[in-house]
Lab assay of single mutants.
Amino acid sequence: NQESVVAAQLIPINTALTLVMMTTRVVSPTGIPAEDIPRLISMQVNQVVPMGTTLMPDMVKGYA
Score class of each variant (00 low, 15 high):
16 A>V: 10
39 R>A: 06
25 R>C: 06
50 P>E: 09
7 A>W: 02
26 V>S: 13
41 I>R: 06
3 E>K: 04
54 T>V: 12
35 E>I: 10
34 A>V: 09
20 V>C: 08
36 D>I: 07
24 T>M: 14
19 L>Y: 14
1 N>E: 15
63 Y>V: 03
32 I>M: 03
6 V>L: 08
20 V>W: 10
56 M>W: 04
56 M>D: 10
10 L>Q: 09
47 Q>K: 15
2 Q>R: 03
58 D>C: 15
48 V>S: 14
36 D>R: 13
27 V>A: 14
61 K>L: 09
51 M>T: 04
3 E>H: 07
48 V>R: 10
42 S>N: 05
27 V>F: 02
52 G>V: 02
11 I>R: 01
62 G>S: 11
8 A>T: 07
19 L>D: 03
48 V>G: 08
43 M>G: 13
41 I>L: 14
5 V>F: 01
25 R>M: 15
43 M>D: 04
22 M>F: 08
6 V>W: 02
13 I>C: 14
12 P>C: 14
53 T>A: 10
3 E>F: 11
6 V>F: 03
11 I>M: 05
32 I>F: 05
10 L>P: 07
52 G>E: 09
60 V>W: 02
43 M>F: 13
52 G>K: 05
43 M>Q: 07
58 D>H: 14
18 T>N: 04
37 I>C: 04
24 T>S: 08
2 Q>A: 15
31 G>T: 02
55 L>V: 08
32 I>T: 02
46 N>W: 05
4 S>W: 03
53 T>F: 13
29 P>K: 06
62 G>M: 11
44 Q>V: 11
45 V>E: 00
7 A>E: 01
14 N>G: 07
10 L>K: 07
32 I>D: 01
22 M>C: 03
52 G>N: 07
15 T>C: 04
43 M>I: 12
17 L>Y: 00
7 A>P: 01
22 M>T: 02
21 M>T: 04
20 V>T: 13
40 L>P: 00
54 T>Q: 03
21 M>L: 13
57 P>V: 12
36 D>F: 11
16 A>K: 11
24 T>H: 14
62 G>R: 10
34 A>G: 11
2 Q>V: 14
33 P>A: 10
36 D>G: 07
19 L>E: 06
62 G>H: 10
29 P>N: 10
30 T>F: 14
43 M>R: 11
45 V>T: 10
21 M>K: 03
53 T>E: 10
8 A>S: 10
7 A>G: 03
59 M>F: 09
18 T>Y: 03
4 S>D: 01
28 S>V: 10
19 L>G: 05
38 P>L: 05
57 P>R: 04
33 P>M: 10
24 T>V: 11
31 G>S: 03
43 M>C: 04
9 Q>V: 05
52 G>L: 09
51 M>Q: 12
15 T>S: 05
18 T>R: 06
3 E>V: 06
20 V>D: 05
15 T>A: 08
63 Y>G: 03
13 I>M: 09
3 E>S: 05
10 L>F: 07
10 L>I: 07
54 T>C: 09
18 T>W: 03
13 I>S: 05
57 P>D: 07
14 N>F: 11
5 V>H: 01
25 R>V: 15
35 E>A: 13
19 L>T: 08
43 M>Y: 13
23 T>W: 14
23 T>E: 11
29 P>S: 15
33 P>S: 12
22 M>A: 01
29 P>A: 08
46 N>M: 07
61 K>C: 14
28 S>A: 13
46 N>C: 11
47 Q>L: 08
42 S>C: 07
6 V>I: 07
1 N>T: 15
15 T>E: 04
46 N>S: 15
13 I>V: 13
52 G>T: 06
24 T>P: 11
47 Q>G: 05
46 N>R: 13
59 M>R: 02
15 T>M: 06
38 P>T: 08
5 V>C: 04
27 V>K: 08
33 P>V: 10
35 E>V: 14
23 T>F: 11
44 Q>R: 12
47 Q>D: 12
38 P>Q: 07
42 S>P: 02
54 T>W: 02
40 L>R: 00
45 V>I: 04
21 M>E: 02
15 T>L: 03
1 N>R: 03
18 T>L: 04
8 A>M: 14
56 M>V: 14
53 T>Q: 08
52 G>A: 06
29 P>D: 12
11 I>P: 00
61 K>I: 07
44 Q>E: 07
38 P>D: 05
55 L>A: 01
64 A>F: 03
9 Q>F: 06
38 P>G: 12
42 S>D: 05
5 V>W: 02
49 V>A: 03
48 V>H: 12
21 M>H: 04
51 M>I: 09
6 V>Y: 03
40 L>N: 00
34 A>M: 10
4 S>A: 03
31 G>A: 05
45 V>R: 00
23 T>D: 09
35 E>P: 09
37 I>Q: 07
20 V>H: 10
48 V>W: 10
59 M>S: 03
28 S>W: 04
62 G>I: 06
44 Q>I: 07
54 T>K: 03
8 A>Q: 06
1 N>Y: 11
3 E>I: 06
48 V>N: 15
55 L>G: 00
30 T>K: 06
42 S>I: 02
50 P>G: 11
2 Q>S: 11
19 L>M: 08
30 T>R: 03
1 N>F: 15
21 M>R: 04
20 V>G: 05
15 T>G: 04
4 S>I: 02
48 V>P: 13
59 M>E: 01
49 V>F: 02
26 V>E: 15
42 S>V: 03
40 L>K: 00
